[in-house]
Design a protein around this nucleic acid. Structure first.
Lengths: 247, 247
DNA sequence: CTTCTTGCGTTTACGCTATATACTTTACTA
DNA sequence: TAGTAAAGTATATAGCGTAAACGCAAGAAG
């Protein structure tokens, strides 16, 4: 009943399985992952189907993919880890912890904007890929290097990731909604906005209506930056409250 | 081709359609929504299928639901708005803006913890429900009342919601993963953790491995609280930098 | 009281998804 | 050259959302 190592249950996370025996022609796996990324970059999470990936690869059937990625979940694991590799992670700790963390967060933000599907999928799989672990390890090293306990370090790392991926999710879903709803043409867009605005007016929401009439405020990039600084400020205070920079 | 009002395109958001003519026996809609919420509360997003909702209602077929909610998307709209109604929103502005926003954020957090599916679904639909609009309107009123521009007010509101829903998403997905992977029994859980930990050790991630060996740090509730305070601190500074509390 | 209309709920059907299983084909190795 | 292990295909299944057509029951109109 069980397919391998793990005692039983259900699909046991591709990271926990032995590396594919890789006997004869290991020219694929990477190609499959690359094709899947291309498909998802183009159409987001909804477009990522096994059939679409096979089509992207050319002369292959859907089932051929299963030889290389085990399941769709496994493919997603590989995709997530692959693009996480686009984020540069320093090899050693620098003198300015905040600058290093800021750079990591910014690079992460740039990556998730390139790959709109990332934020939609990252929450659905355990983050056990080597590059994802390396990235987390770096953050932990930075914070513990500043005297934080391991628990606090993980708290800070999680808090920053939540912000990065949360912001990306917002952008991704907005884009998806714009595609998926009938809002291709500008005419339909304004029509939809006007209808929503009327609802706001009728319901007695003056501020909301005013905003819908003329959406204003920081761009998502600026919002990202702003919140990031808020969070880094908070972490800074907590780190300096630390009894003593130890180890 | 088009079903009603809106010129064309695709499912035009249930909020923008005329309220159902409500001629003969309008005993349902609410019952459908309640049943759907019950189903999703139990099994999360993945369990929310039209068939499951019909089964929950008892003697109805799947297709019967479509008379009342138009589509699955429409049902989700109604569910999201319904539970948003569980968040108390003050009728007027108090003297302590931070306390009011804090209370709203805390109540929102409590709600999304009760309804694990909320964070998974809120990003997939435009937030046009009356109760969602009312909640947003209140936040805008608070911040503009403190002298913020409308754009800044929306920025702050969005930033807080991102944190609330992002935190909820993390909790929801962790729970979903625990259910969906073979981690029903404690034995399997520890086995999975140990395997992951070995990967961390092999990869040379000492901090990560140490943390996996003995996960520590703030609970998700404490993390939520911590980040919330960071964000409120940041907003406070920005509000007090405002030239003058106007209007 | 009878006929007409209207809308509820069901039935049937379609296209799409992931993927288990069994098969054929290919290519390297002994 | 024969044997074998892997690559890729064909087929089939269960579940999903939902379009379309239908039977039926209840209120309105004559």
């Amino acid at each position: 009943m069980s397919r391998n190592g793990q005692s039983s249950g259900a699909p046991p996370s591709i990271w926990l399985q032995p590396t594919t025996t890789a006997r004869k022609r290991q020219l694929e796996r990477d190609a499959v992952v690359r094709a899947a990324i291309a498909v998802a970059d183009r159409g987001g999470e909804v477009a990522l189907t096994m059939a679409a990936v096979a089509r992207e690869l050319g002369p292959y059937t859907t089932m051929a993919l299963y030889r290389y990625v085990g399941s769709k979940g496994g493919l997603i694991d590989l995709m997530l880890d692959d693009v996480t590799g686009e984020i540069p992670v320093p090899d050693s700790l620098g003198s300015d912890w905040r600058a290093q963390i800021y750079a990591l967060a910014s690079a992460s933000w740039a990556m998730v904007k390139r790959h709109i599907w990332f934020a939609q999928l990252v929450h659905t799989r355990p983050p056990l890929g080597p590059r994802m672990m390396r990235r987390t390890e770096f953050m932990l090293a930075v914070f513990t290097g500043q005297g934080a306990s391991l628990g606090d370090a993980m708290t800070y790392a999680a808090l920053l990731d939540r912000h990065i991926y949360g912001s990306a999710l917002q952008e991704a879903e907005e884009r998806a909604m714009r595609l998926h709803f009938g809002i291709e043409s500008a005419r339909q867009l304004t029509a939809a906005i006007m209808a929503a605005r009327e609802r706001a007016a009728a319901g007695g929401y003056p501020n909301l209506e005013r905003w819908m009439a003329a959406p204003s405020g920081a761009s998502l990039d600026e919002q990202f930056e702003l919140s990031l600084q808020f969070l880094l400020d908070g972490i800074t205070v907590r780190l300096s409250d630390q009894p003593d920079p130890r180890r």
